[in-house]
Design a protein around this nucleic acid. Sequence first.
DNA 1: AACCTTCAGTTAATCGATTAAACACACCGC
DNA 2: GCGGTGTGTTTAATCGATTAACTGAAGGTT
Lengths: 344, 344
Amino acid sequence: MVRVRMSDVAARAGVSTATVSMVLNGVNGKRISPETQQRVREAAEAVGYKPNSVARSLRTQQTRMVGLISDTIASTPYAGRMLAGANDVARDQGHLVVLVDTERDAEAERLALQALNGQRVDAIIYACMWHRMVEVPPGLPEDAVLLDCAPVTGGRAAVVPDERAGGMAAVRELVAAGHRRIAFLDAEERFGLVASGLRYEGYLAVLAEAGIEPDPALHVRAEPVAGGGREAARRLLDLPAERRPTAMFCFNDRMAMGAYAEAHRAGLSIPGDLSIVGYDDQQLVAAELDPPLTTIALPHYEMGRWAMEVALGVRQADPAVPHLMPCPIIRRASVGPPPAQFGD
Amino acid sequence: MVRVRMSDVAARAGVSTATVSMVLNGVNGKRISPETQQRVREAAEAVGYKPNSVARSLRTQQTRMVGLISDTIASTPYAGRMLAGANDVARDQGHLVVLVDTERDAEAERLALQALNGQRVDAIIYACMWHRMVEVPPGLPEDAVLLDCAPVTGGRAAVVPDERAGGMAAVRELVAAGHRRIAFLDAEERFGLVASGLRYEGYLAVLAEAGIEPDPALHVRAEPVAGGGREAARRLLDLPAERRPTAMFCFNDRMAMGAYAEAHRAGLSIPGDLSIVGYDDQQLVAAELDPPLTTIALPHYEMGRWAMEVALGVRQADPAVPHLMPCPIIRRASVGPPPAQFGD
DNA sequence: AACCTTCAGTTAATCGATTAAACACACCGC
DNA sequence: GCGGTGTGTTTAATCGATTAACTGAAGGTT
């Protein structure tokens, strides 16, 4: 791996490095004769010249690198989709992404920010792997973009999923199928999930628009994992027949997985006896349940793209209010009409 | 964000930039009086000096950045664990990781390599998200490290999971519980998974060491997803009672998920009537099945660490042969003794 | 007194590009 | 013959650090 410098190209082409630079960068204000351009290009090709971005960055004050600080890359399967979205945009714009995982540690965050600042990255994205409200870490540049989190103080470009609309889409799907007794298997409040309140708002909004009186007994809370979903489903199925739900909207796909298990135990078929909608479109799971789960997808890829587009100035953002990214419904096979005795 | 240069610190402390550099970098061969050191440090603190790594890199010819080329960050939930391992080591060594996703496209790979080379990263890791044999892309430096893949031609430092040992651990667990009729729910050959052959080798090796004659009817293949697992399990459970397996070793957790479903349909309890072991320890799934799945974990985090350690020279690797990373068994609740009538 | 060491720093070259300003030359008009 | 204009290219400063080589003063030796 020999290092070829611009001066090597210049020497071979019999010109100065200035000329080489202008030719190779296609500087348009300057006029270089076509013959010289040709010679320079051939020389560069011949010696296998590859520009040294470090030197270029020093001079131009841009590194064409974007820092991506994330609170956890390891522990969620969604992280990849965000990274992919951000990465695709970065690539198209000729940028590279520098990834730092801070594991939600304030000191690590400080260090990361310092390192990225030292590397003079052109922009910074601060990403969370769960939709959260965050205290913006001190030292985060004004123009940093927040991804899947919103600043408690406001005033930063940020993108989060439109959880309320997602909740509405889920419940509308059930209402459209004819259900009127629709349960919401929510996460317990102690987990402090902002998604929980918003999805519930969506749930209530659609019931209202459909003229359905919400039944408090159908809003149950549990741990947002399969076990919790199972337990919540059991409580609902234990209700007297006339108060029992014909459909369940689950806070996430894992709870839906638990609800499936409990439905099977109770001898109920899905969607014949019970319809279920999840949330997250968790890869390797939602599509593999039996029957495949109708769910609301979290738009991680799109949010990753959005954040990178704003970071690189391809798109403008209003820092006053977080951008709400739509959560599309993924229709599979877990929703059907309510059982006959409940039909109308 | 004012840019403070070293010369600003030097001016404030009344010394030259050389002195500032020596003090701040703790160059030990050089002697700077304690008082001067003190003054320099105070000046640096006062003006908020942060070194410009771009300039430093240009001079020292090291960037303290490592390139990580991956074939897909988006589509697998394991990617995060690899990244986390690599990232942790990089951080401890004062390095940053630059991530590029090539989506298995040769042209994108070429571009990525060129970009990383241009940025003069100190090392390169080439990562796959499924254990594969790969053609090393042209232009990949000699000292690049392969992660979760092995070069078809050999000769590069590489790390892959020890699939054979993992298969052995899985089957030993079942043998130890008393099973003798153990099925292997394998992936179909057309998927070209190197893990498949190796896990099967492990399966056969343990049967041999336990003195169990392998029954070809118990080696079934299907698509390595839940549906495939279900179908494979059905074929096995349809066998006449005396040839039916009492335990199933599944190629992956998704197939195990299908096997669970089929077992329930057949009215079999796990692990009372049927024991199951998976592979992958897929997050958000293996632990959430009911009962929680005993499985073999893929050591993604450890492989990520190993690769980064080798890349940064913290650890030596033998390029002649890929390093085999152990796959630990994760004991949960899906393995028990065989049903009484099969006991001995 | 002449010479050598040691100490505490400074000077200046260097890394490899970019780019404003200067320069050389040809051509043109009067 | 002289200034003006255009063209094509070079010169040299610059980005912000690192570091080998040097300097100048103080102290020690013979």
